[in-house]
Write a protein that binds this DNA or RNA. Sequence first.
RNA 1: GCCUCUCUAGCUCAAUGGUAGAGCAGUGGACUUUUAAUCCAUUGGUUCAGGGUUCGAGCCCCUGGGGAGGCACCA
Length: 504
Amino acid sequence: MSEPTTEPDGTSGSGLAAERARRQGEVDDLRASGGQPYPYRFDRTHTLGEVRDRWGQLEPGTETDDAATIAGRVVLKRDSGKLIFATLRDRTGELQLFISKAVVGDDAFDTIKRLDLGDWVGASGTVMTTRKGELSLKVSELMLLAKSIRPLPDKWHGLTDQDTRFRQRYADLIVNDEARRAIEIRHAVVASFRRTLDDAGFTEVETPVLHAEAGGAHARPFVTHHNTLDVDLYLRIALELHLKRLIVGGMERVYEMGRIFRNEGISTRHNPEFTMMELYQAFADWTDIMDITERLITEANVAAIGSTELTLRGETVDLSEPWPRSSMIDLASAAAGRQIHPSDPVDDLRSLAAEFDVRVEPAWGGGRLVAEIFEATSEAGLVRPTFVTGHPTEISPLARVDRNDPWLTERFELYIDGREIANGYSELNDPVEQRARFVEEQAAKEAGDAERGTVDEDYLRALEYGMPPTGGLGIGIDRLAATIAGVDTLKEVILFPTLRPEVW
RNA sequence: GCCUCUCUAGCUCAAUGGUAGAGCAGUGGACUUUUAAUCCAUUGGUUCAGGGUUCGAGCCCCUGGGGAGGCACCA
């Protein structure tokens, strides 16, 4: 992080300061001779990809009269005297410029010779291939579109330092194809979700980010302050409670894809701000929601990588095959070697938890203990997409109780590659029961569990107007995108991941 | 928050406790079909910061800082 903060003194030496000074000098020279180093606009006739699509089949050594005007960044330059080859890149690909002194003239050739790696240029000419068959634009005219006064990272190795990659994402994106690919996959997932949901009759909505109380999940919130109202507000930790208010309002099918914020640690699987897609569908229950979860993710995978197949830890899974559904208590029981249930004596479950090195709190009941045992024993092994169902009521304050077992809820979580990707349930819509659950949450919070919830009176008021039977779903977009992209950290699919502020 | 690892030229990386180096980029030169072009020459360093040990520290020790991985946290 030892960037010079003062202006370089001149052209002595050849460190970064000198390099920037030299390139700035090129800008100054160009201006002095009436040129424009940063012109306002440029009209191209083809992207580089379009040139390749249209003329990519030319035989080696072909000259055409086909004209094209293109634009891109100079990423490689090969100067062989009276010929210059420059590789241009735009977002669609790369194309070589073939620049001959005899074609452009001595003055223009000398100017082109002074281009630096990183400069943006526009070029007009005719399409050709070299003797070796490289598709090229034989340049007749070239203009600088924007000068780069800072040198690009190594043309072959790119950037490898994680810190620099994520702090200077712009440089990372310039030189690392893989960085661009992961972001494109993320976009494909997001766009696919919107298509799937729009086709299924869902309305996309936006609800507040600033909340008077942070509900809908168990997490510690960020606190902020509104000056003129003079109230503390929380950044939302979930979308859930506002979206269900819209179901009360009769919107029937709504979804939101938005940023949520949780004040917790940073890891390969966690970023303090991340993107959640939540949907709510009236008249549906959790089984419908599992179906739409499969559809959303399978279609996103196809959109992102062109196949229903996904490779996880070296093994290929076909997402078009039905996804296994296993109940949490069955999984925990299998791991425990005996049948367990949240209704079991708490002491028994507590000692069982201890066998698996689960840290337990005195306030935890049987439901929380069963869930903790499941997480400790089974979660990491759920590689292929698996619905884990029937979460204990104790840890599911917004989910509807299982119609056959009051200790459990009609809830599921989807695990892929050992990671929790989605969460859904039949929504609790009885305002009396919801109030009782909220009261329990608040009691736990007041007893010291900072992540528990509060009684949201306005939400209860909404429920009192009547919420139809509803199924709801939340999918972590970042985790899903990282899984589909096959990258090992969320940071790869988050353009600007949270980092400690840089010291200048 | 804890543990481990890591930080050397703009970038990618070397360097038994003994004169800080290479490739790329840059600069000067040669070259009209290159492909990470090639060839010749060459500039560039507060080795993250500050202390300490030592005749001598990029290297060993301490403190601090950035980052990564793991743990904790994250229903």
